[in-house]
Design a protein around this nucleic acid. Structure first.
Length: 837
RNA sequence: GCCGAAGUGGCGGAAUGGCAGACGCGCUCGCCUCAAAAGCGAGUGAGGGUAGCCUCAUGUGGGUUCGAGUCCCACCUUCGGCACCA
């Protein structure tokens, strides 16, 4: 071995990258002699170039997989490509390449970059969602949904992006704009396919409680998104008409204050109940509401507008006839699309009543020291706004002007009223959700075709499972045009009915790419199966994912859809787990100049150039060290230099005849000199800290602990040389501890220093509590809360001994000097606290 | 508006209620060098003192405690999520 070499990552890194690939070091097989560990990083959209933000993401996953391997787990760490979707298609339109060509080239490029970073995956399990052997089973998922009545088609106002010329799921509309391109989204009535995710709303919310290892933040976001609320549906009979208006309310107890009603402009009853005198005004208002984009509707948030239909309905509790209005502050998509307005207790209804001079009846009055009914309820003083002498009160209190409820505290009043409504047949308690069904149709080319056929005789027919895949035709003008590009391909559209064999037409919409990514983690368990999406036995061996790592931007969309599909498959008997991801980690972004790295902002630090300059190990170590991995971190060009210097220091620790891989088990503590003991104490305390930190994903402090160990080793080496048994132990440990994080340099030094086998298949170093224990400890002495001295004690000193030593220390004795010691205590290993009077 | 997270040196950040600022970056001085780079060593929160040391300091103001960056209350600021959801 030539130990005169300098540290040269450009030479050693490719060497080991090829070693891992050639030896398939990280390719997984079933092995029942070990516990399994399924490590997964969210599969990327193959955009081509990776930047340091990506490197952080994949390094965390790679460290996890390598660490768990050393800990004795049978690890599966697969990777694939979320390859369908708008970005590929838009890029393809821009530079004239077919999306499949562009996507497949990007996949090749990105694999190369993974390789250069030393990120090891089981490439035998690679999947790409745009290939027929994958999307065949995405289509199969659709058919299971269809079979279970969880996929259905309906005409509904949909979010339409005029730029991308496709509909979007509610989850893809952000502040009224398209999540992808930022264009203002408009409403368009279209017949679209939906997945009935609302059927799973309760399970999706309740099962969050079975996920203690998910970030609380993500669970809260999902709870809010699903938005479960408890209330009642109440019927208000129409006056002078057949029928009734059913409203949803979370506060049925305030019904005595319901002095008018409001329907959403799109509510189906509007046309029927509007009187001739009011018809023009109502129709104008409905037309205006329809014309507005989401953004316009939100921009006049506070200014309430509406129109009276001319109709009246009867308040079922008061018996009064109250006017029925329409207003766009009531949403047709939430609840029943109709409300009872209680202006005395609801700010929106109050504003509306003031504007249109409608009566206001207070039904709750505050009482002293009332507790809010639910967390988040305001318990404010009543507000009196200009233009009325009746105040608005939205807080808790007791009921007034409410007949039988008078004097009942709010909260209790709600359950009482629901009971009354149910007994009198006027309404019923119900649960309502903000969540709406998942719109999966897309009028775009680059996606999995929806496997449905329309027959003039038999109607809508699912494609037979044996006829999958419905292949996406390649030779297509794929530019968007308001309807799916597939509709222009006659050879695709015209087919035969799976039921009667007669002529029929295919569905031409494709599926939302989030369908593709909602089950890929199951395909990894059995990626080459061509008779089923996966073998349940294999899925049950690997599932659930033990560590799932990705960006917090997927907190709602992907993570909720994946949970939904997993539950559907569990109901189908395909997999045993109810939840796909046991432990979730959401890592922060790496920013530069305060912004997320992106090509358009020109602030990208490419992985390629960084790795070429200083090596993958330096880059990996820096993204681990940059800060707490769940928080955003600002890129600093100088930061990698510190890591490069550190790795050079590690390299130099191994100069000369340093051997690794021995075992100290046959040596007694008494065989070591005091300086050896000190070094070994540091070694074992570092083993404990690094192990704990990696388990907790505190990579930044794990790295700093190893740096401290390296510093201690350098000091020891300077004093005693590298040839002692203790130094060899330390050298062995420092390489093993660093191995998951900087795999190349550690593999090289392990080999050069004569280590047995390959470092990455060695067991993780064992913590030895006896070697870690100190013989003497230094503790602080506080007098009246201020540190006044530090004393050295035996590690096992008793409280009495410690206090006695503290009181007899020169400095403390001078301060105490004759004063009364009121209290003295010893916190073992930490400090002595003395209180004097 | 509601929900949640976070405010610590010049910077990134450490700290199961127990010696605040670990580790790294930057900076200063020194060694090495003809010189530089690299490397190595020392120092580096603020203020005071020749010095031993002392005082102040974790967004602001209170509180609990022998002891608070950490726990409690109120407020300020920043960021994230939801937002006319009845």
């Amino acid at each position: 071995m030539d130990r005169d070499q300098k540290y040269n990552p450009q030479v050693i890194e490719p060497k080991w990258q090829h070693y891992w690939q050639d030896n398939k070091t990280y390719y997984a097989k079933r092995d029942d002699s070990k516990p399994k560990f399924y490590a997964l990083v969210m599969f990327p959209y193959p955009s081509g170039d990776l930047h340091m933000g990506h490197m952080r993401n994949y390094t965390i996953g790679d460290v996890t997989a390598r660490y768990k391997t050393m800990r004795g787990y049978n690890v599966m760490n697969p990777m694939g490509w979320d390859a369908f979707g708008l970005p590929a298609e838009n890029a393809a339109i821009k530079d004239g390449l077919h999306p499949s060509v562009r996507t497949l080239q990007n996949i090749v490029d990105m694999k190369e970059q993974f390789f250069k970073m030393g990120i090891c995956y089981d490439w035998d399990r690679e999947v790409a969602s745009c290939l027929p052997d994958y999307y065949r089973w995405t289509q199969w998922m659709f058919l299971q949904m269809y079979k279970r009545d969880l996929a259905y088609r309906k005409n509904a106002p949909a979010n339409w992006c005029p730029n991308d010329q496709t509909v979007l799921a509610n989850e893809q509309v952000v502040n009224g704009r398209c999540e992808r391109c930022g264009a203002e989204v408009i409403k368009k009535d279209l017949t679209q396919w939906f997945f009935r995710i609302t059927s799973y709303a309760d399970r999706l919310i309740d099962d969050l409680d079975t996920l203690p290892d998910w970030p609380e933040r993500v669970k809260t976001m999902q709870r809010n998104w699903i938005g479960r609320s408890h209330g009642a549906k109440v019927d208000f009979p129409l006056v002078g008409h057949e029928g009734k208006i059913t409203v949803y309310t979370t506060r049925p107890d305030t019904i005595f204050g319901a002095t008018f009603m409001v329907l959403a402009p799109e509510h189906p009853l509007v046309a029927q109940i509007t009187t001739d005198e009011q018809r023009t005004a109502v129709e104008n208002y409905v037309a205006e509401a329809k014309r507005q984009t989401e953004i316009e509707r939100m921009s006049n948030e506070k200014e309430k507008t509406g129109a009276w239909t001319g109709a009246l309905a009867r308040n079922p509790m008061t018996g009064e006839d109250i006017p029925v209005w329409i207003a766009d502050y009531v949403l047709v998509t939430y609840g029943t699309g109709a409300i009872m307005a209680v202006p005395g207790g609801d700010e929106r209804d109050y504003d509306f009543a003031l504007k249109y001079d409608l009566p206001i009846v207070p039904v709750v009055e505050p009482v002293p020291n009332i507790e809010p009914v639910e967390k988040g309820d305001p318990s404010l003083a009543p507000v009196l706004k200009a233009g009325t002498n009746v105040p608005l009160y939205t807080g808790a209190g007791q009921m007034i002007n409410s007949g039988p409820l008078d004097g009942v505290p709010t909260g209790e009043s709600k359950t009482t009223m629901i009971k009354m409504l149910e007994e009198q047949g006027k309404g019923e308690g119900t649960v309502n959700y903000r969540l709406r069904d998942w719109l999966i149709s897309r009028q775009r080319y680059w996606g999995a075709p929806i496997p449905i056929v329309y027959c003039s005789e038999c109607g809508e027919q699912p494609v037979a499972e044996s006829d999958l895949p419905v292949v996406l035709p390649v030779d297509v003008d794929f530019r968007p045009g308001g309807e799916s590009p597939l509709a222009r391909v006659e050879s695709f559209v015209n087919t035969t009915c799976p039921h009667c064999g007669g002529p029929a037409k295919r569905e031409t919409d494709t599926m939302d790419t989030f369908v593709d990514s909602s089950w890929y983690f199951l395909r990894f368990c059995d990626p080459h199966n061509d008779s089923a999406p996966f073998d349940p036995a294999k899925a049950n061996y690997w599932m659930g994912v033990d560590q799932y790592t990705g960006g917090v931007e997927h907190a709602i969309l992907h993570l909720m859809y994946a949970r939904f599909l997993t539950k559907m498959l569990a109901d189908e008997g395909m997999v045993d787990v109810q939840e796909p991801f046991n432990r979730l980690f959401t890592q922060g972004m790496i920013t530069k100049d305060g912004a997320k790295m992106s090509k358009s902002k020109g602030n990208v630090v490419p992985v390629d150039s960084m790795v070429d300059a200083q090596g993958a190990d330096t880059g990996r170590l820096f993204v681990l060290f940059i800060g707490p991995p769940d928080e955003d971190a600002e890129w600093n060009d100088r930061g990698t230099e510190g890591m490069y210097r550190f790795l050079n220091r590690v390299w130099r620790l191994f100069e000369g005849d340093v051997r690794v891989g021995g075992s100290g088990q046959d040596r007694a503590i008494s065989d070591y000199s005091p300086s050896d003991r000190e070094l070994l104490r540091k070694v074992h305390n570092t083993i404990k800290k690094v192990t704990d930190d990696i388990d907790r994903f505190h990579f930044n402090t794990a790295v700093s602990a190893i740096m401290e160990l390296a510093n201690a080793m350098q000091a020891y080496r300077d004093a005693h040389g590298p040839k002692t048994y203790a130094f060899s132990e330390a050298a062995t440990s420092v390489l093993l501890l660093l191995a998951p994080m900087t795999p190349h340099i550690t593999a090289e030094l392990w080999e050069q220093a004569g280590g047995q086998g390959h470092i990455h298949t060695q067991p993780w170093p064992a913590f030895n509590a006896e070697l870690a224990a100190a013989e003497t400890i230094e503790v602080a002495v506080q007098v009246n809360g201020k540190v006044r001295d530090r004393i050295t004690l035996d590690a096992d000193a008793s409280e009495a001994e410690a206090i006695n030593a503290a009181l007899t220390s020169e400095k403390v004795a001078a301060i105490v000097d004759g004063k009364v010691v009121r209290q003295a205590l010893y916190v073992a290993g930490r400090l002595v606290s003395i209180v004097i009077g």
